[in-house]
Design a protein around this nucleic acid. Structure first.
Length: 342
DNA sequence: TCTGGGGTCCTAGGACCC
DNA sequence: TCTGGGGTCCTAGGACCC
């Protein structure tokens, strides 16, 4: 099992057409203007040395790396590069490819020499795209995925049952794929701090704390277990959403209603392209200062009328406005197909 | 200190049914 | 008036990932 992950993907693609920027701190994010409200999508290794990371506000990135070159996000170009990468992976004889995102995929392959297979894939991707990648080798998807980070950049690393505990045992649980700060804190509250702690944790205690699916998943994760083969079933979206970050907070009811109508129109437009019948729309409305999607509403079905969606979301906004100090930052409409999720 | 835009999957609790 | 056990489905919300 291999996990292939492109190195500083968005930046690397930009450097192909702007070779004069190689070696400089480069930040890709938003419209490329660090005075605007937007975040870093990808930072070059030189910018990362200044503490610039994905998700950091562009304003703060500028402060940390004043000399960095800021570039706008150019989706079509990255999509095209991604397609060539995935095509190259699929062209590997005997490979089963499970795409995880623009810039990464699992590659299942039968071989006695996984390291050679990894090197061969790196060479093929470089040849086809001019881009470098790192490859994790593992006996499970989770181990391969986590191994990749130790191989960056342009390298390989292998994590198996034999060295998992040695490499991961003393690390915090948040080093695991799928454990973020919230779950990490809840684990710590029940005395589980490290990966080794989690691996040794009582299954029943985990299930009691996190529920049947998550509880047993967490225990397995601590041991590096789980699936051992990728699934190349073509991906079918289960939801669609549209979200926008406004450069200034929307305060007045008129501003909010207009923004909601615009987003609703975009979601409806997207849903109409679905071949499957769609019967539910969830609305999530994001507010500051909570910075979270705070409400979900199921619409009367099957309703894909812009005005109905807009009015429902607007009612939501008015209800939350009662709490005072609510600033609208973004709105997201979500559609869920009848057979999807939950 | 400020906060993308696209997603996925899971859970608690209540309603309802037999 | 008090109270069963098992199951399914729905709603609202949470967490995480790239």
């Amino acid at each position: 099992m291999l996990h292939v992950d492109m190195d500083q993907f968005l930046v690397a693609v930009e450097l192909l057409r702007r070779p004069e920027l190689v070696g400089l701190p480069v930040v890709v994010g938003g419209r490329g203007d660090p005075t605007e409200r937007a975040v870093v999508s990808t930072a070059s290794y030189e910018a990362r040395a200044h503490g610039v990371r994905s998700g950091l506000a562009l304003k703060l990135a500028k402060r940390r790396s004043p000399d960095a070159v800021f570039l706008p996000v150019d989706f079509p170009v990255y999509e095209a590069a991604s397609a060539v990468v995935m095509q190259t992976l699929r062209a590997t004889p005997g490979a089963v490819v499970e795409v995880l995102g623009w810039d990464e995929a699992f590659v299942g392959i039968e071989t006695d020499d996984p390291l050679a297979a990894a090197r061969s894939i790196q060479a093929a991707v470089l040849e086809a795209t001019g881009l470098h990648c790192s490859v994790g080798i593992g006996d499970t998807l989770v181990r391969a995925k986590i191994a990749t980070d130790f191989g960056k950049p342009q390298g390989t690393f292998r994590l198996t049952r034999d060295n998992w505990m040695e490499v991961m045992g003393e690390r915090p649980t948040t080093a695991l794929w799928g454990v973020g700060t919230k779950i990490g804190a809840r684990l710590e509250a029940i005395g589980i701090r490290t990966v080794a702690d989690l691996a040794a944790a009582d299954e029943e205690a985990l299930v009691a704390a996190f529920g049947p699916a998550s509880g047993s998943h967490l225990g397995r994760l601590g041991r590096g277990g789980g699936r051992t083969t990728p699934d190349d079933t073509p991906w079918v979206a289960r939801a669609h959403g549209r979200e926008t970050t406004y450069q200034a907070d929307l305060i007045t009811p008129d501003e909010v209603r207009a923004a909601l109508a615009e987003l609703a129109a975009r979601v409806v437009d997207d849903v109409r392209k679905e071949e499957r019948a769609v019967q539910r729309v969830h609305l999530k409305v994001r507010f500051a200062p909570f910075f979270t999607f705070t409400k979900v509403r199921k619409l009367p079905e099957p309703t894909f009328d812009v005005e109905v969606i807009t009015q429902t979301a607007y009612d939501l906004y008015l209800a939350l406005d009662d709490q005072r100090r609510v600033r609208l930052l973004g709105v997201r409409g979500e559609m869920v197909p009848p057979d999807g999720g939950y």
